[in-house]
């Protein structure tokens, strides 16, 4: 234990169990800190710090990626830069590509995927939703695994996130006829908070019918969510101009971001809908095998 200032106490657990136990003991006044890149912004904004800080940086067993048959397991304390490096060498590009659009190289060297998810504002969340990711928490009774989709609907969470699971199949299923995209709308090319992010993953059969579709939005203060209505509308149909128009319209209806000082809600809706329509269009104009 290390005393910082009068009132602040720093804990440095070495294992996930230790960390989870500490949090349980200290309760509301304690806060997990992975790299602190998100928290630092928050503390600055609110001009206040929590009393107890549980630093996760020494917990080595939650760092790194493992490829299993059918899914990819990512330790919650894996740094974004490391993730990108490993994934690029595995030939998976969409997560790696998304990571290059988060913060800056210096921040990505520190920032973790767990922090990105648990902040509830991370750019990766909509993409992970589109990829049907699952996450695992450490509880009293062991590890508890759930879909990211069910978790984002829950309220504040005080458990330790240990792993993220991405079904491998959704990344490479029928390579030639599936497509995943990540589009972040920001006010400049890089090092920029997202105003809105739209992600998707879709596959089509030999006849060009969409057989799988995930569409998710997030970014800014908008909580990440799947666009179920739009998905339903598209599944089982062939893409043509009419359907693109309907997709565009449906996203506008379903995605209802808050306006912010730098963009109106209408703009964010239109831009997100355009991006998705363009992805669908180019996906379906590619030659069918």
């Amino acid at each position: 234990m290390d005393m910082k200032e009068d009132s602040q106490v720093l804990f440095i657990p070495q294992t996930p169990d230790e960390a989870a136990a500490m949090k349980q003991r200290l309760g509301q006044d304690a806060c997990f800190v992975a790299a602190g890149t998100f928290l630092q912004l928050q503390w600055n904004e609110r001009k206040s710090h929590p009393r107890f800080i549980i630093s996760l940086e020494q917990i080595k067993e939650l760092q790194g990626l493992q490829l299993y048959d059918g899914y990819l397991e990512i330790g919650s304390l894996t740094h974004l830069a490391e993730m990108k490096k490993t994934l690029s060498s595995e030939g998976d590009s969409i997560l790696a590509e998304a990571i290059t659009q988060i913060a800056s190289p210096a921040i990505r060297n520190q920032a973790t995927i767990g922090g990105n998810i648990m902040s509830k504002k991370g750019d990766l969340i909509p993409l992970l939703l589109a990829l049907d990711a699952e996450i695992a928490f450490l509880t009293d009774s062991g590890t508890f695994r759930q879909s990211l989709l069910s978790w984002i609907k829950q309220k504040e969470e005080s458990l330790l996130l240990t792993h993220v699971y991405i079904p491998h199949i959704s990344i490479s299923r029928l390579e030639e006829v599936s497509h995943t995209f990540f589009r972040k709308i920001g006010r400049r090319e890089s090092f920029i908070p997202s105003l809105a992010t739209i992600c998707g993953s879709f596959s089509r059969d030999i006849e060009g019918r969409i057989i799988h579709m995930r569409l998710a939005v997030g970014g800014g203060d908008h909580p990440a969510e799947r666009l179920f209505n739009t998905e339903k509308h598209v599944i089982g149909r062939k893409i043509n101009e009419d359907l693109l128009e309907q997709v565009y319209q449906s996203i506008i209806e379903e995605f209802t971001p808050e306006k912010n000082p730098f963009a109106s809600a209408e703009y964010l809706q239109m831009a997100a809908a355009n991006l998705a329509a363009a992805e669908l269009q180019s996906f379906c104009l590619e030659k069918t095998i």
Partner: peptide, 18 residues
Amino acid sequence: SPEEILSAVNERGLLSWK
């Protein structure tokens, strides 16, 4: 403003779905 550009895109019907 990208917003202004996007309205101009819409006015001119430059995107097939819109």
